[in-house]
Structure formats: structure tokens, C-alpha cells
């Protein structure tokens, strides 16, 4: 438990009638590189946006470092239209159940063995308290209607940094300023001390740290260039550097290799491995370049139409029939 850095429980994101992410549960362990793959429109970026607080998930819980970070349940109008699973798991009405035990009872009933079934039922009822305790252990807010929905900046402050699928640098600003902005969040200052330069020591520290980071990322010679004047590959690198400047524990990369040629992809693969080691990061990424994914991921989750269809090590996922079907499509003959 303690080495799980990110944990998603039954996360569902529904837009109107469209369920973009459906009952997604996964976890990222400390120090791991985990990839989220799936065909276009599978809901990967939506899942990322749920983690970073851009969207408020319709249902489910996301915990960071064992603490619930996001928690929601369908409410208001959505209560009526909710099409996902576990509608009451994160409300007061939640009754924890043990699927296995229930199946055993049902099987006994089926077999006509009323005595065993009754015994099992009694044992099951006795264990209700225990199940409650267990549920509370996993989720301290269980059996309550508590909604936790921080804004993205608070999530970044907790230690989750991200990059974007379509690069989002601050266009009118230099490489140096782009990275420097990420330091603003943790600086000990307020608008008065900053304006009247009373916190100049803090400013100096921010600048020095930024300089050091750019030096490490081999971007220092570009410090005074405009961010948008950089070639595409370097803009990606700069975006990652900017994310690193927020001192994250978990880095979310949304298609870091999009639009890169094989050579650049190879360099990126190496780069991701390096930064993980250097900054003690856990990395969770969305990627379409299979060679990159298969090479550096410790584990892979596969999404299709919002649902998790497979997970495991690269070897397992590669040979999973459902994954192959999802990517290549199923021929009509097989379906018949």
C-alpha cells in the first residue's frame, strides 16, 4: 500500500449521455513507469484530465500517496442519467459487499444445499462490520457524501505535474521565463513583498534553481529565445522541464512522442528513463508509439471505449487477444 503513489478507484467520467471513462481502476507504484494506451477516443486524455482536476469525475475516487485527492458521486441531474457502475459507492448509501462470498452463497442455493447456504449467509452477515472497517481503511471518507474536488493548481501543488498532448507553452515568453513561472507556486512571498522586492532572496533562489534545471536539461543556451521559436522536439523537452520545475513526485506525460521521428523517439525513451532516475519520479504516460511504450514501461493499462480491457507487463499486454482486437478490429467471421 505504502508504495502506491497514484490510485484510481472506479473512476467514471460522463459527459451528458457519453461515458468517456467507465469504471476505471488502476494504480501507479512509486518509481514505476506506467503507460496508458488505447485506440483513438478511448478516453485516455479524459482520464488524465480527471487526475489533474481539469474535469471533475462523475463518480469515483483518486488517491495520491494514500490520501484521497479527488472524490465524487453522481449528484443532481446526473443522478438520473448516470450510466456507469457503482453509483452509490462514494455516498452514504454504500454497503460494502464481498462478491466471492455472495457467489458462494448463490452456488449453494443453486445446489439445493439450504443448510450450507444459511451458514454461509450467517457468516457473511457477521462479517459486515469487518467489511465496513476494511472499506474505511481504503477510503477514510467511505459512507459519507463527501465530495473532494480541488482545482488543478492544488493538485500540482501536491506533486503531480503534467505535459499536454498539444504543446501548451507560454508563447510570448522566453525559455527561461517559461520554467521560472513553475517556481511561482512554491515561493514564500505575497504580492506586496514581490512588488516592492522585499522577497528578493526568494526571487534569486527561484532564478538560480531555474538556471540549474535548464543547465541539467541542456537548454541553458536557449534561455533568452522565445519558447515558440524552438523546434518541435525542443518544445517538448521544454514542456517536460517546465513540469519538472514544479518539483513533482508523479509526472503525467500526454503523448510525449507525438509528431516525433524514430530517432527523436529513441532519444526521448532514453531521456524519460534518465529523468525518472535523476528526480526520483514515478511516470504515468499516454503514448501511441508502441516501441517506446514496450521498451520503457513497467506496466501497461489498455483502455477501449472508456473501459479497461487489459493490464500487465508489456509482454502480457502484447499477447492479449482483446488488445489485439481493439487495435486491429475484429473480423466478422470470428464474431459469427
Amino acid at each position: 500500500m505504502s508504495d502506491t503513489i497514484l490510485r484510481m478507484d472506479n473512476v467514471t467520467m460522463q459527459f451528458g449521455g457519453v461515458v468517456a471513462v467507465n469504471d476505471l481502476s488502476l494504480q501507479v507504484n512509486r518509481g514505476e513507469i506506467v503507460a496508458l494506451i488505447g485506440p483513438n477516443g478511448a478516453g485516455k486524455t479524459t482520464a488524465f484530465n480527471c487526475i489533474t482536476g481539469v474535469y471533475e469525475p462523475t463518480n469515483g475516487m483518486i488517491s495520491f500517496n494514500g490520501q484521497p485527492m479527488l472524490r465524487n458521486h453522481p449528484a443532481g441531474k446526473m443522478k438520473k442519467f448516470y450510466a456507469g457502475a457503482h453509483a452509490d459507492k462514494f455516498t452514504k448509501a454504500y454497503v460494502p459487499q464481498d462478491e466471492e462470498a455472495l457467489a458462494a452463497i448463490a452456488a449453494a442455493r443453486e445446489a439445493g444445499d439450504e443448510l450450507t447456504a444459511a451458514n454461509l449467509q450467517a457468516a457473511y452477515d457477521d462479517a459486515a462490520e469487518q467489511r465496513k472497517e476494511q472499506a474505511l481503511l481504503l477510503d477514510p471518507h467511505a459512507f459519507s457524501d463527501k465530495v473532494i474536488a480541488p482545482t488543478p493548481d492544488k493538485i500540482t501543488k501536491l506533486g503531480i505535474a503534467r505535459t499536454f498532448q498539444n504543446i501548451r507553452l507560454f508563447k510570448s515568453q522566453t525559455v527561461f521565463d517559461n520554467v521560472l513561472i513553475a517556481k511561482h507556486m512554491r515561493a514564500k512571498q505575497n504580492i506586496f513583498t514581490a512588488t516592492f522586492r522585499l522577497s528578493y532572496k526568494e526571487e534569486k533562489r527561484m532564478r538560480e534553481e531555474t538556471e540549474a534545471l535548464l543547465e541539467e536539461q541542456n537548454l541553458i543556451h536557449l534561455r533568452n529565445e522565445l519558447a515558440t521559436s524552438l523546434p518541435y522536439g525542443l518544445q517538448r523537452r521544454l514542456e517536460i522541464a517546465r513540469a519538472l520545475a514544479t518539483d513533482p513526485q508523479l509526472l503525467l506525460l500526454d503523448e510525449p512522442a507525438a509528431g516525433m521521428n524514430p530517432q527523436e523517439t529513441l532519444e526521448l525513451t532514453e531521456f524519460i528513463g534518465q529523468i525518472r532516475k535523476k528526480y526520483n519520479l514515478s511516470i504515468f504516460m499516454i503514448e501511441h508509439h508502441m516501441d517506446l511504450v514496450m521498451e520503457i514501461s513497467d506496466r501497461i493499462y489498455v483502455l477501449d471505449f472508456g473501459r479497461l480491457i487489459a493490464s500487465g507487463t508489456p509482454d502480457v499486454v502484447q499477447n492479449d487477444q482483446r488488445v489485439i482486437d481493439a487495435y486491429l478490429g475484429v473480423s466478422d467471421d470470428v464474431e459469427d
Partner: peptide, 27 residues
């Protein structure tokens, strides 16, 4: 002075890209 301080940079970041600014921890 304000524009050239850390807060001024945050303001400019919001102007350039709200979503990215928020992802950088700017409330």
C-alpha cells in the same frame, strides 16, 4: 515593478494559456 515580479509573470502566464498556467500551480 509588479509586472516584472513573480506575480507579473503569473499574470502573463494566465494571459498566454490559462490551462497551462493552472497546471503550473497558479490559482
Amino acid at each position: 515593478l509588479l509586472i516584472n515580479s513573480s506575480y507579473g509573470r503569473a499574470f502573463k502566464a494566465i494571459r498566454d494559456d490559462e490551462i497551462a498556467a493552472e497546471a503550473m500551480g497558479i490559482n
